[in-house]
Amino acid sequence: MTDRTSSINNDDGTVVGGSQPIVPVPGGAPLPTGPTLGDYSEAKSSAIHSPGSRTWRRFRRHKLAMAGAIVILLLVLTAILAPIIAPYDPNAINLMAINQPPSSDHWFGTDAVGRDTLSRAIFGARVSMTVGFFAVAIYLSIAFVLGATAAYVGGKVDTIIMRFTDIIMCFPTFVLTLILVGFLGPSIWNIVFVIGIFGWPGAARMIRSQVLTLRNQEYVQAAQSIGAGRWYILTKHIAPNTLGVMTVAGSLGIAGAILQEAGLSFLGLGVVAPTPSWGVMLNDARDPALLATFPWLWLVPGILISLAVISSNFIGDGLRDAYDVKGHGD
């Protein structure tokens, strides 16, 4: 099923369908690439050779991506510094002050047992960031090994790996995740692991097509012609140049992983209470009878989830333009 891809834009091995990063969005669509917020003409010129300063300059110019990067950075800092920033112990209850609206004592109000919503939201960043970053680290590693091997070794190995990728892509990722988390039992590291081992196919395809492109680049062929070893070429020339694809896939993947964690928590398969997580907070507040009565209970985690996801998506988008991962058209 992958053949169609190389046949559409066959000259550079870029894949129209297959190279799109597939973001496993629970119930949602794979996030498309394609030009979006910033179609900077400069970004369209081939940019594979020098990933350094020029990329950064382009990325910086992508305002939404910069904003997204700042938000994610803040969230990561929040997660790390949670015990210092949080005004209260996130699990400290106060039954005499339940469901309090926002006030100067509790900026985001309190929940059903009087816990401080702000503190819980701050600690919840830990779960989302952990799941986002670690799950993506796992699946990028898998994706790189499989994608690079497929492209670099080629032949039968390529066919086998890519067929396997196709097979995994037939499974609804979220369903596999649900089942495996069900087997293993809910815990944050199980969630990281499960999202990690099912998330890789999209990224693997992207990496494969990138490596295919690189393999045909002049400087790689030149290196080959002067007798450089395969391993040397792979580590010196190929791997560094897949960084672009990897970061794009990674940042889009973080968005997907955060959404998956929220979905799992919503179905009661997320992190184990009373550990605060945005998904759990949202689930606790889902009773329609109370949506209008205690809006701060769902607004805070809801906005945070969306903010984190949208920021990761912006970053991915900006990076894609900056690295020109898929030179659309030209």
């Binding site: 699990n91 209850i93 929940d111 047992v113 809910p186 184990v272 209470a273 009373p274």
Partner: peptide
């Protein structure tokens, strides 16, 4: 089944007297 605000509250009350507990759901 599932934890709830009630169980979270009780867990906090138990912890306050030195009975630490962890859920297994």
């Amino acid at each position: 089944g599932t934890t709830s605000p009630l169980t979270d509250a009780i867990m906090a009350m138990l912890a306050a007297v030195g009975l630490k507990a962890e859920y297994r759901v």
